[in-house]
């Protein structure tokens, strides 16, 4: 199976790359960080003896993406699976965020994801089942004060993935949207989760388990995967309770948590 992973050099993307390599898939990895990309490529090749191709790419830059697509076409690379993992977040209230950083969130989490998905859907291997995965968030289930510029683009991905799945139903393809709660991917995310206290711990899921089960769900034709029983219950509550109530509860919780860790640079829970 040929798999393309966007944002493969860190966190969930790296865990997905490990899981795919363990399954013997052939990998095409991209990330902004070329040095880190070469590290994970070499690590996977040493450990699993699988085929790994890596190419650095700034997904928010049309020229960079075009260059990568040219590389794919030149080498005749086609895919059976696309994992859209790349994403970013900046914590804080809407007004406290820099304008350009808000735009960056949309540019990477939504615009770049659509750009790549469109391109790779045209580069599917003929006659084979195709699977694509979008990483949304548990945050997409609620109005999220103090994380609004993160949660709203994630809601976009949730709805887009659901709609795209329907469009592709007759084309031997599946679209899975992953909506994880917290995951410990680095020191900053560990600090952010710790700052949320017991709720942070309870809504956090092991990275390696999320990666494995998300792939299983995608391959089994599922639509949406929310890791963790508590997270699934919270997502139901988000649908039942009036949005202003949810917004008030979320604000109360995040206000307290963010005060504790906002001095940690680039802290985010995914």
């Amino acid at each position: 199976m040929n798999v393309m992973i966007m944002g493969a050099a860190g966190g969930l993307g790296r865990a997905m790359a490990v899981e795919c390599a363990r399954r013997g898939y052939h990998l095409f990895l991209t990330d902004l960080d070329e040095q880190a990309l070469l590290c994970i490529k070499a690590g996977l090749e040493r450990r699993f003896r699988t085929t790994v191709v890596a190419k650095a790419c700034d997904l928010t830059d049309g020229g960079s993406v075009d260059a990568m697509l040219c590389f794919l076409d030149r080498n005749g690379l086609k895919f059976d699976m696309l994992l859209n993992i790349a994403g970013t977040d900046f914590e804080g209230s809407f007004l406290s965020r820099e304008r350009e950083k808000i735009v960056q969130i949309i540019a990477l989490n939504d615009a770049a994801t659509l750009r790549i998905t469109h391109a790779i859907l045209h580069r599917r291997r003929q006659g084979r089942r195709f699977v694509t995965l979008f990483v949304s968030s548990l945050a997409s289930m609620f109005p999220m004060p103090l994380k609004a510029t993160y949660a709203a683009p994630k809601r976009f991905l949730l709805d887009f993935a659901t709609a795209l799945r329907q469009e592709l139903k007759g084309q031997n393809a599946n679209v899975l949207v992953l909506c994880p709660g917290g995951m410990v991917t680095n020191d900053a995310s560990a600090a952010a989760i710790a700052a949320q206290g017991i709720w942070g711990t309870l809504t956090t899921n092991p990275l390696e388990v999320v990666a494995r089960k998300a792939l299983d769900h995608a391959l089994h034709g599922k639509r949406c995967y929310i890791p963790g029983v508590l997270n699934r219950m919270l997502s139901v509550l988000g649908k039942i309770l009036p949005p202003p109530w949810v917004a008030a509860a979320v604000y109360w919780r995040w206000h307290r948590a963010q005060r504790k860790w906002l001095n940690v640079p680039n802290a985010h829970a995914r």
Partner: peptide, 11 residues
């Protein structure tokens, strides 16, 4: 480490 976390090499 309390959680499964990986190095740059995925280890």
């Amino acid at each position: 480490r309390s959680w499964y976390r990986t190095t740059e090499d995925g280890y």
